[in-house]
């Protein structure tokens, strides 16, 4: 299928606030994104605005503070989807179509049970949590990520393994955690399944603690995918670095016209869809 025919559902509710740049990222690469309110999928809207998830090839959960994140980050958005749209979402994922969650979107995917999704596409209860950062603070800072996936993740197929990219972080709850008694066991399982996509590193590419790893997340994990590789959740924001001039240090001897580090996430997914469908 041609890239310009790939329809991307950029899903939002009140408090979703990174939809503009998410939309722009797909638009820039020639796809056909649309900002869709959840109520347009559930049918709580005039008929002319009604949308069907099955008509899209990519589903994207942008960042923000959906419904204020007042219960737990992402919990309210996830609950609304689960109560009304769970079969549609399951169908979407099981068909192999890509689902991307950035920042609050990652939190939503975890709350929804789409990640880490060990045994079923959509787990009954969340199997992980994106807990408050160790610093207890909202952290808006540049972060470096090392690509660690061996080839399963459809969002990083164009990024060589071991490559380090700069995606900025901006979150207060990015500390990925599993049940304490089994935490390392689960991390090993993620590794064995090739579900780890990004780990935080310092400017030289070495694993490092705070502030290079802004949240204190387990094993420096910044992004994971499902066992099939078509659902990716990550805390940092690739959609904010589509051009070099959006990087924090581009005035230091870098060509502002060059592509930004984030582009590869979107172009990989579009390439995957265009090949597969």
């Amino acid at each position: 299928m041609n890239i310009q025919d790939i329809r991307v559902c950029v899903l939002r509710i009140e408090g979703t606030n990174c939809e503009e740049e998410a939309y722009n990222a797909f638009k820039l690469l020639g796809a056909d994104p649309e900002k869709v309110h959840l109520k347009q999928l559930t049918g709580d809207c005039p008929p002319s605005m009604r949308r069907d998830l099955d008509d899209y090839q990519i589903l994207m959960f942008p960042g923000g503070f959906s419904a204020g994140d007042y219960v737990r980050a992402g919990a309210i958005f996830a609950a609304r989807i689960k109560s009304r749209l769970a079969p549609d979402v399951e169908n979407f994922v099981s068909s192999g179509r890509p689902v991307l969650g950035i920042c609050n979107g990652f939190q939503i995917l975890v709350e929804l049970g789409l990640l880490p999704s060990f045994d079923e596409i959509l787990s009954e209860e969340p199997q992980a949590a994106l807990y408050t950062n160790d610093s207890g603070r909202f952290e808006c800072r540049p972060t470096y990520l090392k690509h660690e996936n061996h080839g399963k993740c459809v969002f990083t197929s164009q990024l060589p393994r071991g490559e380090v990219v700069l995606f900025p972080s901006a979150h207060a709850e990015g500390n990925l955690r599993f049940p304490t008694d089994r935490e390392m066991e689960i991390v090993r399982r993620l590794e064995e399944n090739d579900q780890i996509v990004f780990r935080y590193v310092d400017a030289d590419g070495n694993y490092a603690g705070y502030p290079w790893c802004p949240s204190g997340t387990v094993a420096n994990i910044g992004g994971i995918c499902n066992p099939e590789g078509n659902v990716l959740g990550l805390m940092p924001h690739p959609e904010r670095v589509m051009f070099r001039y959006q990087h924090p240090d581009w005035t230091r001897d870098q060509d502002p016209n060059a592509p930004g580090d984030g582009r590869v996430i979107f172009s990989s997914a579009l390439e995957y869809v265009s090949r597969r469908y």
Partner: peptide
């Protein structure tokens, strides 16, 4: 400054804190 999201909307091309990353 680090508590404020100064990059949301992805249009802040010269940022409030400047210099070598870190």
């Amino acid at each position: 400054v680090l508590q404020y999201d100064h990059e949301v909307r992805a249009s802040t091309v010269v940022k409030p804190l400047q210099g070598k990353t870190g």
